Amino acid sequence: MANIVLVGGAWIGAWAWRAVTPELRAAGHQVYPLTLTGFGDRAHLGTPETDLSDHVQDVIAAIEAEELTDVVLVGHSYAGSVVTVVADRIPERLAKVIYVAGVTPEHGKRLFDLIPGVEEIMQAMADAEGDGWRIPFISDETLDLYYGEHGLTGQHLGWLRTHAHGVPIATHREVIKLATPDSSPVPRVFVHCTGDGPAHELPHYGRDWVRAEIATGHWPMATKPVELAALLDRLVVA
């Protein structure tokens, strides 16, 4: 049995794990799906100043409030940046960090630095539909252009669009600062979603990575929730 904390990526909250959470609990784990500030039921708390540090504090505060130790911290997509900083701040609380198609940021850089030109595109989207500070959920055309074989059906997209909230753009503009970028004591696992295309190179963080994959697109909690839960169950003890 493990304490598993689930952190969704951009646009989504705890609601996105609703088909994964019961599977993990049935396997005997304590499971805590989180919603970051500005998303889901906490959308009303988002402001133009909401940044990555706020999301890091969301996760740390939840872990401390629940008095959790030996945590398996799961970060999906954008939340890979969040869990990376959390692991740097409270490594003593964590047993493992699992990135599900997660961003693996670099010390001293912003998320926007990872893909040249994307900042201008995202700002234009925010200006058009997000009051200048929220990146709205992407269009079908952008989804097909940038997310490979994402596997999202019309039903999946309807569900995501109903509940998704725009991402505060300041989260992608904050410079990531890690106290121990090359000497983390926390084991790392990267789950590659094959629909995303080739797996990207991973930073060292002072640890060798365990790699796994799941045959689906970027949002496996929507497209393959049972399979994702089974994989996470195996990785918890691996």
Score class of each variant (00 low, 15 high):
residue 180 T to D: 13
residue 87 A to F: 07
residue 123 Q to I: 08
residue 62 A to H: 11
residue 129 E to P: 06
residue 129 E to F: 02
residue 96 K to M: 11
residue 181 P to L: 05
residue 102 G to F: 04
residue 129 E to K: 11
residue 129 E to D: 13
residue 182 D to F: 12
residue 138 I to M: 14
residue 86 V to E: 06
residue 89 R to T: 12
residue 135 I to F: 07
residue 97 V to G: 11
residue 150 H to L: 10
residue 109 K to G: 09
residue 162 T to K: 12
residue 63 I to C: 09
residue 76 H to C: 11
residue 110 R to G: 08
residue 94 L to Y: 04
residue 132 G to A: 04
residue 67 E to D: 15
residue 108 G to Q: 06
residue 76 H to P: 13
residue 162 T to N: 12
residue 148 G to M: 02
residue 137 F to W: 04
residue 151 G to M: 05
residue 64 E to A: 12
residue 58 D to W: 01
residue 91 P to N: 01
residue 101 A to W: 00
residue 76 H to A: 10
residue 80 G to D: 03
residue 84 T to G: 07
residue 64 E to F: 06
residue 161 R to P: 15
residue 135 I to C: 03
residue 153 T to I: 08
residue 110 R to D: 04
residue 124 A to H: 09
residue 105 P to Q: 00
residue 167 V to G: 02
residue 87 A to G: 15
residue 99 Y to C: 08
residue 165 H to V: 07
residue 79 A to P: 14
residue 68 L to C: 08
residue 129 E to C: 01
residue 129 E to T: 04
residue 122 M to C: 09
residue 116 P to R: 00
residue 126 A to N: 04
residue 111 L to V: 15
residue 72 V to E: 04
residue 130 G to K: 03
residue 176 I to G: 07
residue 88 D to Y: 09
residue 86 V to S: 06
residue 106 E to A: 12
residue 134 R to I: 05
residue 98 I to Q: 06
residue 144 D to N: 14
residue 95 A to I: 04
residue 172 H to Y: 14
residue 86 V to T: 08
residue 166 G to L: 06
residue 95 A to N: 10
residue 148 G to T: 02
residue 100 V to T: 08
residue 62 A to V: 10
residue 80 G to K: 01
residue 103 V to C: 09
residue 132 G to L: 06
residue 178 L to C: 12
residue 60 I to P: 06
residue 132 G to P: 13
residue 75 G to T: 07
residue 71 V to E: 02
residue 105 P to K: 00
residue 169 I to V: 15
residue 117 G to R: 03
residue 101 A to Q: 08
residue 157 L to S: 10
residue 59 V to I: 05
residue 75 G to I: 05
residue 62 A to D: 10
residue 163 H to K: 11
residue 85 V to E: 06
residue 173 R to N: 14
residue 155 Q to V: 15
residue 66 E to A: 15
residue 77 S to A: 13
residue 82 V to I: 15
residue 149 E to G: 08
residue 93 R to P: 11
residue 114 L to C: 02
residue 181 P to D: 00
residue 140 D to Q: 11
residue 129 E to I: 01
residue 63 I to S: 09
residue 88 D to C: 12
residue 138 I to P: 10
residue 149 E to Y: 05
residue 177 K to N: 12
residue 76 H to D: 07
residue 164 A to E: 01
residue 105 P to W: 00
residue 94 L to A: 06
residue 179 A to Q: 14
residue 119 E to Y: 03
residue 87 A to V: 11
residue 122 M to G: 05
residue 59 V to T: 05
residue 119 E to W: 01
residue 93 R to M: 02
residue 131 D to Y: 00
residue 145 L to E: 15
residue 132 G to C: 07
residue 175 V to Q: 05
residue 104 T to C: 15
residue 155 Q to G: 11
residue 87 A to S: 15
residue 159 W to A: 11
residue 110 R to W: 06
residue 157 L to T: 09
residue 84 T to E: 05
residue 150 H to I: 10
residue 140 D to K: 14
residue 79 A to G: 11
residue 60 I to M: 08
residue 155 Q to P: 03
residue 63 I to P: 14
residue 68 L to R: 02
residue 123 Q to M: 09
residue 97 V to N: 05
residue 116 P to W: 00
residue 80 G to R: 05
residue 181 P to S: 01
residue 88 D to N: 09
residue 88 D to L: 10
residue 130 G to V: 08
residue 140 D to P: 14
residue 181 P to F: 03
residue 80 G to T: 01
residue 65 A to Q: 13
residue 81 S to F: 10
residue 92 E to M: 02
residue 79 A to F: 07
